[in-house]
Design a protein around this nucleic acid. Structure first.
Lengths: 189, 189
DNA sequence: GTCTATAGGCAGATAGAC
DNA sequence: GTCTATCTGCCTATAGAC
């Protein structure tokens, strides 16, 4: 199965949004990187809003696939968390933010449809984190007080914030420092 | 001492950047709210980059004044933290992000000068948080493991991330939930 | 200091040929 | 599906009158 033009567009556009922000990404930028004209992109995605909506849906779906994969290859809850954090370190290293974190900051420029999809993504993230935490508590690799769901909300805020701060220096250590410190406090090992 | 035009411009522009983002704020927007023309604004701030630079310097300075005031009126370290968090809840309520968090997300659109000022602001924030934490540890109202500086970095990431997430729902409770939970874990009371 | 007028560029989007 | 050509509108910024 070959990658279609629509998929290539989404891929390139997504990286541009994650690194530059919604309003600093243009059809001209995608056109330049992909090698087809702006009009060609409009054939696949009539409006920018439409493009962003499909982008977030795809990002959300890829997140589901990615976390499902992490679940299968990880033996412990701690391992799940570690892999999750490592993945986000990779984003920081290419100067990217989580797509939905970037769109949350550009929230006022979004259509209602996109805002709902962004919320849905964060709901999925929180639910997955909650599961990972609960899993780790049961297998004895993680320890924390209170409900996994509330702990998950806190972890989510922590690493999204850490990614944002790391951007100010373009230094992945600004992300790793607080995140590793958190992992050390919840890890029983 | 009356507020000068330059000050009014900075004030209005800052709120626009905090609520909409750097690239979604224009001289036309400021012009509309302030009642003087775009050319009039260019007289005070020749370029947008210049305007943003002055804005961040002013924001940083106001942060110093604000935290110094919090220090004088607070009896405990816990009280300092609580006031700090309450201030940021106010920002969330008007759909604003911390100015420097917003600019960190728009980092790729910034001049080097502005990026340095954003870093300086975060350094000041972290240092103040570290002091508040240490103060609280000594007065017995706060408890946490390890160095106040590393704890400060984590707290900073936590509430900046919580503000970002709260934006996705435009719901201050999404900020309060993780932040209050954090305060509960460090409070000895 | 603030105005009118305008330059020059880039944005998102469309029409119609191939 | 992709192209060339073009539209309209907004952007930052400047010139010059008052």
């Amino acid at each position: 199965m070959e990658r279609t033009s629509a998929e290539k567009i989404l891929e390139i556009a997504q990286e541009l949004v994650q690194t530059r922000g919604l309003n600093a990404m243009s059809y001209a930028d995608i056109s330049e990187q992909l090698g087809i004209t702006k009009a060609g992109i409009h054939y696949h995605f009539p409006s920018k809003d439409n493009l962003i909506l499909e982008m977030v849906k795809r990002y959300h779906q890829n997140f589901r696939y990615g976390t499902a994969h992490v679940n299968t290859i990880s033996k412990t809850g701690l391992e799940r968390l570690e892999k999750h954090m490592a993945y986000h370190a990779g984003l920081v290293q290419i100067r990217a933010l989580c797509l939905c974190a970037m769109l949350a900051s550009d929230s006022e420029s979004l259509s209602e449809d996109v805002r709902f999809e962004v919320q849905a993504f964060f709901n999925t993230s929180r639910a997955w984190l909650s599961d990972a935490l609960e899993f780790g508590r049961r297998d004895g690799t993680l320890t924390f007080r209170g409900s996994p769901d509330l702990e998950a909300a806190q972890v989510l805020a922590l690493y999204e914030g850490a990614m944002l701060l790391a951007r100010a220096w373009n230094d992945v250590e600004r992300y790793n420092e607080p995140v590793q410190r958190y992992l050390a406090t919840v890890s029983t090992i």
